[in-house]
Simulated scan of single mutants.
Amino acid sequence: MRTIRKVHKAEYRPIADLITYSPMPTRSLRMIDPFLFLNHHGPQKYLPNNNGLPFGPHPHRGMETVTFILEGDIAHKDSGGNKSVIEGGGVQWMTAGSGLIHSEVSSEEFKKQGGPLEILQLWVNLPAKLKMTEPKYKGLKKEEIPQTTFDNGKVSAQVISGKLQNEEGAFETLTKIHLSTLFLKSGGVLETKVPLDHNILCYIIKGEIKINGEIIPALHLIEFNNDQEELRLEALSESTVLFGHAKPFNEPVVARGPFVMNTMEEIDQAYKDYEQGKMGDPYQ
Rank of each mutant, 00 (worst) to 15 (best):
T3F: 02
T3L: 08
E11L: 13
A16H: 03
I19Q: 07
T20V: 07
T20F: 02
Y21D: 07
S22D: 10
M24R: 08
L29N: 13
R30E: 08
F35H: 06
F37H: 13
F37L: 12
F37Q: 14
H41G: 05
P43E: 10
P43T: 12
Q44A: 10
K45I: 13
Y46R: 10
N49A: 08
G52R: 03
L53V: 12
F55T: 04
F55Y: 13
P59R: 00
R61E: 01
E64W: 05
T65I: 10
V66D: 01
T67P: 04
F68Q: 09
F68R: 07
L70D: 09
L70P: 00
D73G: 04
I74S: 00
A75E: 15
H76K: 05
K77D: 05
K77I: 02
S79A: 14
V85Q: 11
V85N: 14
G88R: 12
G89Y: 07
V91E: 01
W93P: 12
G97R: 00
L100F: 04
S103F: 04
S106G: 09
K111P: 01
G115M: 03
G115L: 06
L120K: 09
L122M: 14
L122I: 11
W123A: 08
V124E: 04
N125D: 12
A128H: 11
A128L: 06
K129E: 13
K131H: 07
E134N: 11
E134S: 14
P135Y: 10
K138P: 13
K138R: 10
K142Y: 09
P146E: 08
Q147C: 04
D151W: 04
V155N: 07
S156R: 12
S156I: 04
S156N: 05
Q158V: 12
I160C: 09
I160N: 06
G162Y: 00
K163F: 07
K163Q: 15
K163N: 14
L164S: 02
L164D: 10
Q165I: 13
Q165E: 13
N166Y: 04
E168P: 02
G169Y: 09
A170W: 13
E172R: 06
T175K: 02
H178P: 03
L182K: 14
L184F: 13
G188N: 11
K193V: 08
P195C: 06
L196I: 14
L196G: 02
H198N: 15
H198W: 10
H198T: 03
I200Y: 02
L201Q: 05
I205L: 15
E208T: 15
E208L: 15
I209L: 01
K210R: 12
I211L: 10
I216R: 09
I222Q: 03
E223P: 03
F224W: 11
Q228G: 06
E229Q: 12
E230F: 15
L231E: 09
L233Y: 03
L233R: 00
E238R: 03
S239F: 00
T240L: 11
V241M: 03
V241L: 02
L242K: 05
F243C: 05
G244C: 01
E251S: 10
P252M: 11
P252I: 10
V253C: 13
V254P: 01
R256V: 02
G257F: 00
G257I: 00
V260T: 15
N262V: 07
M264Q: 15
M264V: 14
E265K: 14
E266R: 01
I267K: 00
D268K: 00
Y271C: 01
E275C: 02
M279Q: 02
M279P: 05
D281F: 12
D281G: 07
